[in-house]
Simulated assay, not measured.
Amino acid sequence: MLPKVNQILYIQVNSIDPDEAQQEYKSRIADVNANYISMEVPIHVGTGRLKRLYAGDQINAYFMTEGGVKNYFNTVVLGFKEEVIRLVLIKPPEPDHITKVQRRNFLRVPAELEIAVKATEQIMFTAITDDVGGGGVSFLCESRVPIKTHDVLSCWLLVPYRNGAIEHANFKGEIVRIKTLENGKLIVMVQFTEIADVERQRIIRYCFERQLDFRKR
């Protein structure tokens, strides 16, 4: 299902500047057709300032539907259209490329991904995840690592996709549970506390690709 006229589209612009990549903007959709979606010039969600876009800009976007479902998709700026106001034209997504996620029911999948973890300036280590999802991750680490429940961790997750592309997802998360396994290692369960939508979308995309792989087996 594509977004509809007058719906609000929330976007983040892909950028080599990590601060800019995390900024969220919103825009009202003016028109939807087979060739493009037109939207008003986006404004920053926090400051209300206008965001200047350029043809070719890569965008991560989502719109809300009933039940609090976020519909994520990736798109690109095609150009501009001058009417009563200036409109931005973006490429409409294929319906099967829209990822639907209900915030309170994030998909979670088993996954062995590399993750870098920073607990303090002195405590930094790498680990392998046990599972990942849009609401958090769990990872395995050695029992000698000095972490405890309710610690807040800064993490960098390596996210590979089926097409061979690799991205990183950065987030902060709180340890909600630690369990000691029979082999002496710890399994650490982390819930996201700070994560940009563009970072969460990368993880969600990976989860859906993994789910499709499982269904094909």
Rank of each mutant, 00 (worst) to 15 (best):
T75H: 03
T75P: 02
T75D: 09
T75N: 08
V76L: 10
V76F: 02
V76W: 00
V76C: 08
V76T: 15
V77A: 10
V77D: 07
V77T: 05
V77K: 00
L78N: 04
L78C: 01
G79P: 08
G79V: 01
G79Q: 06
F80L: 14
K81L: 15
K81D: 06
K81Q: 10
K81S: 08
K81F: 08
E82V: 15
E82F: 06
E82D: 11
E82W: 00
E83S: 09
E83A: 13
E83Q: 04
E83R: 02
V84C: 05
V84G: 11
I85L: 01
I85C: 01
I85R: 01
I85N: 01
R86S: 09
R86N: 13
R86D: 11
L87M: 06
L87G: 01
L87D: 00
L87K: 02
V88F: 10
V88H: 02
V88T: 15
V88I: 15
L89T: 01
L89W: 00
L89I: 07
L89R: 06
I90R: 03
I90D: 03
I90P: 01
I90K: 04
I90S: 05
K91T: 15
K91M: 14
K91S: 14
P92F: 09
P92Y: 03
P92D: 03
P92H: 04
P93R: 10
P93C: 14
E94D: 11
E94P: 00
P95S: 11
D96C: 14
D96N: 14
D96L: 15
D96F: 15
H97I: 08
H97W: 00
H97Y: 06
H97S: 14
I98K: 04
I98F: 05
I98V: 12
T99Y: 05
K100D: 03
K100Q: 08
V101G: 03
V101M: 05
V101A: 05
Q102N: 12
Q102G: 06
R103M: 06
R103I: 08
R103C: 06
R104W: 00
R104M: 07
R104A: 13
N105P: 01
N105R: 08
N105G: 05
N105M: 12
F106C: 15
F106V: 06
F106A: 13
F106I: 10
L107H: 11
L107D: 08
R108S: 12
R108C: 03
V109Y: 08
V109H: 03
V109R: 01
V109P: 03
V109F: 11
V109Q: 04
P110G: 00
P110Y: 12
P110K: 05
A111W: 08
A111T: 13
A111L: 11
A111R: 09
E112G: 14
E112L: 14
E112S: 14
E112M: 13
L113S: 10
L113E: 06
L113Q: 09
L113A: 01
L113W: 09
E114T: 07
E114D: 11
E114F: 08
E114A: 09
E114H: 08
I115C: 07
I115G: 02
I115K: 07
I115Y: 05
